[in-house]
Nucleic acid binder design. Sequence first.
DNA 1: TAGATTGTTAATCGATTAACAATC
DNA 2: TAGATTGTTAATCGATTAACAATC
Lengths: 211, 211
Amino acid sequence: MSDRVIGRLSVYRRLLHGLRDSGVQSVYSHQLASMAGCTAAQVRRDLMAVGYSGTPTRGYDVSALLASIGAHLDAPEGQNAALVGVGNLGRAILAFFAGRRPRLSIVAAFDSDHYKTNRVIQGCRCYPVEDIAQVVRNNRIEVGIITVPATEAQEVADRLVGAGVRGILNFAPAALRVRPDIYVETMDITVSLEKVAFFARRGAPKKEMAR
Amino acid sequence: MSDRVIGRLSVYRRLLHGLRDSGVQSVYSHQLASMAGCTAAQVRRDLMAVGYSGTPTRGYDVSALLASIGAHLDAPEGQNAALVGVGNLGRAILAFFAGRRPRLSIVAAFDSDHYKTNRVIQGCRCYPVEDIAQVVRNNRIEVGIITVPATEAQEVADRLVGAGVRGILNFAPAALRVRPDIYVETMDITVSLEKVAFFARRGAPKKEMAR
DNA sequence: TAGATTGTTAATCGATTAACAATC
DNA sequence: TAGATTGTTAATCGATTAACAATC
């Protein structure tokens, strides 16, 4: 299943949660499409990919669809993540995810500044970066979040991968070199802002939903 | 010029700045490609798009290339941005961009919390959200950065667009509905983290550089 | 039944990749 | 000159879009 499909499924899930909380029991593809900002055909194709079928008269059952998407996206036994770099951005992300997702939780933070280590920040225990190998192994951490300066990002990535991390969400403005079996997603705020600034001047191109 | 090309040009530019600071005068497409995490053919195609030609023996001249990319990406007279939502993430972004880019600067912040307004936060003046229309117009702000909760994002987007903003970088987990001539880029951290978690379990798909 | 929606297939579109001639 | 690199063209690949039959 492709990169983009997974991203859209994640979006659908959040929307479906909202619908279920509002008491909505079924939904049509075009409704989801309108809320997610994509096409109805895309929605139907994506939902077929998770093996769930709708019915022509009722559309898709919200609860059953949530279960199907969850079965595809979530690890049954849950997954643990670690964040490296407790600066402004790191703290913001810790605060955002603290106790939010039962199936995917940030269980450890790391920093090289000893004024930050060995205490709890935004609800998350902060360790020295030297302990990455040990803490990642002990806690079966599979996902790493990198919020250190660009100059340190590659070294941190190497440590994380060496300790067993298989996927990295990278906020540092640097292209990480990792083994081909490691998944890296780089969120480059500077690049995104420059893109927005460019198209703010030049006019928006045909819309697209990449995620 | 497409969305992705602009993103890659922004990456090349940062790399070229680093090279120039190190005293490097010329560079080959495969060198840039290796640093940017894309293919040499992509680099050559992208650089042709900005109208700069290399030479077979020397490759591309770093300084001249920087000038060409800048001429395409930057507004000659500079551009102003505003950030709405001075929470943890908002402050992190303000701190990151404070006084960094002469051609693209965050000149105003907004928040609905009156304990935050009418003072300077991370080097940026913070106004009440009610003043968006006035401040955006007075400062010729074209770019908006949304770091408010999802429930408020659409209202903030409407205010920004109404005041004249043409491009939005949206960190709220919500699909914004705006006029088709407005460019919106949504950076959804939750979606990205779920993608990383998924591929950490399932194994990375063929690599791609979207930005 | 009638009709809107679903799932399937074929056509289109865009971007990437590969092959090759041009160049310093 | 020789050779690696550039710029150009054609082929490939993937995803999206459009058209249509199936269904409740």
